[in-house]
Every structure is written in structure tokens, then in C-alpha cells.
Nucleic acid binder design. Structure first.
Lengths: 248, 248
DNA sequence: TGGAAAATTTGATCTGTGTCAAAGAGACAT
DNA sequence: ATGTCTCTTTGACACAGATCAAATTTTCCA
């Protein structure tokens, strides 16, 4: 599966969480009809909370547009982002009733939701859905583990570069055409959200972005629009192997 | 499912990765026979590598005895543990050919392995296995995300206390009987392994353990044998909510 | 049982990131 | 346009944890 495939998958069937991430070929008509019946859309404004940690969560969903964040917060307010959901990403878990972390809309957000009970029933009836969800969950686990390396061992500069790479790769697959070295994208996160993603303070995030700009690794128009003149150069700043960890 | 159940599950059918973690009830005879045919055991000495990141991994397995660690290493040698496998834990992924991280034996290790091809065929044939693996993977994802909070936001002391709690909970379920406040267990990790787990240096790990000892939170006999006189006291040091995050 | 190698502890010092504070820049409503 | 509010940048300083070094304890093999 390539990102290109995923994009097509998303565009062609934007309301099926299983089809999302490029499994169109395996979805059959009667399943789609079933999904039609149990689906509904929900919109959230930037900053709104979708579910609170510990709350009942009676639906599963996939992101249609916008960005959502999964966060965990300690009693004294320290918060760590533990998941970043971009369009086509899936959220919620069959077999669990209670959300283990806060889900909040980072930007304006539209999600396609499915009530959990019927969704689970469909899972029982059509085995390949569980297999597909397993695959998606394993991908998420891989991402979480790469994130753990970032949190535990990378410097602030490497963390910023890594985050920019992640966003560049995701957004680039949606926006840009050429496979040239130059990449252009918008930062969909505030400095504070980036800090919560990276386990830093927002001041450190700001300083490191300034440093990368001064060193010519990135260019900024306004606070959000990023141009990467040399993608390899940014890659080198992440501390990751040059093959980008995309080896499976 | 309680930890007590898991213990029984492990003892009664130590060679079935699906039965492990207390799903005995759903395993049927013909599946067990199939598993018999494709299973084999492998042993590793402490320190040995089971698979290298990027290598072919043509089996899935579950830990019978000992401890294994999943680690990621950067080019310059910085390493971060991203998974800790205790007895009954599952490793490997149907649908993936290449290991995304190193798997090494932390102690002497025995694993019960299943060649991947036939295991996958069995998954196709018996849908509830994929569902069970999905559930297990979601548990792992939750653990990974709690770990991310630890790596990103906790102090060194909180990190140590959290790790001790995790081990105490797991080991206690195997060793101790009473639900008293006192817990006794062996630390199965070197200071270096703990440091790699927590995103610290081994010196900091040593210092913080000394500090917890001096403050009476833990007692040490030798370097490995730990006594926790007041479990709640240790819990308070972790920074976690008092309910222990076990709310699902 | 002795002795070398490995693991751990402890000390001294350094440094990257956090903390606190204030000034600048954008976004938006009136 | 003007002012208010939020987000971002920048500065000065503090401190938790890293680094470098050495002493001590444990392990384990001869």
C-alpha cells in the first residue's frame, strides 16, 4: 500500500472506515449498505473535545477532514499527546466501552461515525473486517513505538525535524504532485500542540523552529506555511536511518 | 479478565498463544491440534538476540519463561526499549515479513513459536483468532501510549516508580498470594535495561533507586530483590491517577 | 577460594531544556 | 482602522538529568 493508494481510497469512499486506508477491493456491496445505515456525521470546532478520558464512547469513527489529537493528562496538568489523527485515520475500539484518553479537535473536524453495537455485529458477520482492523492497529502500534524512540532519546532539534517530516509526508501525499526535493505544506498544529506531541515546552519548540529556519533547513511564510528546500537535509536532522523506517 | 485468570490460563495451556492471556474458553480442539503441528520451542540465553530489526521473521511466538525486550537503536547507538515481553506475551505479526525492531532476550528465555504461514492460514479459517489478536494488540497500544506519557512528561523519580509498579503488578500476579499492602518481587532488568526502558541514563536510574530506598519507599536485598512496604506509597510516586489507569 | 570482569554506586561538573517574564505579531470583532 | 485577545518569539536564569571519572560490589569462572 502506498500513500497514493490511500488517497484514492479516501476520495472514492469517504464514508467507510474500512475502505479508508486503501482496502476498497475487499469491501462488498452488502457491507457498504449496512454501513450506510449505521453511519452519521459529526462536526467539531477547533479546540472542542470529542470525548473525555473515562467517558462512555458508543461509536467508532474515521476522520473525514481536519485533525484530532489523543491526549493524556496528569493530575497537575502535564499533558502528552499520544495520537494524532489525520484524514482517513480511524478512532475507537470495538470491544471497549470507555475512552482511555481525551480526544480533541485540533482544527475544525468532521468525522464519520458508526454506532458501536451495529459495527461490532458487522465485525462478527464479516471476518475480514477484524483482520483489516488488526492490520491498522499494528500500524498504529509501530507508529507509537517510533514515537517512543523520539520521546525517549531524541534531542529537541531532532524531535522538531521528525515531526516536520511526519507532517510533510502525510500532507505531501495529499497536496503536492512532483517528487522533487522541495516540499511545501501547512503546519496544522499550534506550538503548544507540537510541544505536547514532542514532550517539550512550547518555548523550546519555538526556539528550535527558529534555529532550523536560521540554518536554512526550512523556510516560513507566516507562522504556519512551511517550505522545505531540501527534503534530504531535513531527513538528516531527524536522527533516523536514511531509509526513513518505511521498510515493511 | 483479571490477572489471576491470566495466570491460570498460562499455566494450563502454556503452548497456545491464543489461549495465553486467558481465552482458553474459546479455543476448540481442532484448533489446538492444528497448533500442535506447527509449534516448536526456542531457547535463548540472556543477552542473545532473537531477531534483528529489518530481518526476516518467519514465525510468531509467545513467551513461555523469561523476559524479552523490543528495542530501537539510532545510528549513534542511542537505544530505546519499545516493548517488554513477559511470560504469556505475544510477539510477531501476521501479515508482516520484516521485524521493525530488535528482539533480544533480557533473561534466559523460552518461547513457543509457530511458523507464520500455517498460523496465518489458521487465522483465515478461524475468525475469532483475528478478533482475539486485535484485542491483544489494542491492549499493547494502550500500554504503549501510557509509556509515551511516561517518556514525554514524567520526572526520573516518577519514571522509576512507574516501572517498579508495572513489574510489581505483573510479578505479584504470579508470585504472591495475599492482597496485603506489602509486595515482594525480583527486578528482572539491569540498570542499563531500565534506563533504556525509561529514556534515562543508567547513572540516573541508580541514583533514583538509591533515593527511593533512602526515603523508605522501597527496600533492597542485593541488587535485584525488592520489597515494597507500602504499595500505595509507591503508587503515589508514579504521578498517575490513583485508580491506576486500569479503568476499562 | 581467589581473582578478573561486569554491574552498580557515588561524586563532580556540565549542559540542554524548563521556567519565568516581557515584547512582538496575527487574527478578529467592533 | 483600532483595540483586544491569542499565539509566538526572544531573553535571562535555574535546574534536572547527562557526562565523565573513580570507587565499590556482585558475578562467575578457573
Amino acid at each position: 500500500m502506498t500513500l497514493q493508494d490511500a488517497k484514492i481510497g479516501f476520495k472514492d469512499c469517504s464514508d467507510c472506515p474500512i475502505r479508508h486506508r486503501a482496502v476498497c477491493a475487499r469491501c462488498e456491496t452488502n457491507e457498504l449498505e449496512l454501513l450506510e445505515k449505521i453511519k452519521y456525521y459529526r462536526s467539531y470546532e477547533a479546540g472542542q473535545t470529542v470525548v473525555w478520558s473515562g467517558d462512555q464512547m458508543d461509536f467508532v469513527a474515521s476522520v473525514v477532514t481536519g485533525i484530532a489529537a489523543l491526549t493524556q493528562t496528569m493530575e497537575d496538568g502535564r499533558t502528552q499527546m499520544v495520537g494524532l489523527l489525520l484524514p482517513s485515520d480511524f478512532v475507537g475500539r470495538p470491544g471497549r466501552n470507555v475512552a482511555p484518553y481525551d480526544v480533541t479537535a485540533t482544527t475544525n473536524l468532521m468525522m464519520c461515525c458508526f454506532r458501536k453495537k451495529p459495527f461490532e455485529e458487522m465485525m462478527q458477520a464479516t471476518p475480514h473486517i477484524a483482520q483489516r482492523l488488526l492490520e491498522m492497529t499494528l500500524d498504529e502500534l509501530d507508529a507509537a513505538r517510533e514515537w517512543m524512540l523520539l520521546l525517549g532519546r531524541k534531542t529537541a532539534r531532532e524531535k522538531i525535524a521528525s515531526l516536520l517530516m511526519i507532517i510533510a509526508r502525510r500532507e505531501a501525499s495529499l497536496n503536492v504532485s512532483a517528487d522533487s526535493d522541495v516540499r511545501v505544506f501547512d503546519l496544522p498544529l499550534t506550538r503548544e500542540a507540537m510541544a505536547n506531541y514532542l514532550g517539550l515546552t512550547l518555548e523550546t519548540v519555538s526556539r528550535q523552529i527558529s534555529a532550523l529556519r536560521k540554518d536554512g533547513v526550512i523556510m516560513l511564510e507566516g507562522k504556519r506555511h512551511v517550505t522545505v528546500p531540501d527534503f534530504q537535509r531535513l531527513q538528516d536532522e531527524t536522527g533516523d536511518d536514511s531509509d526513513g523506517g518505511m521498510l515493511f
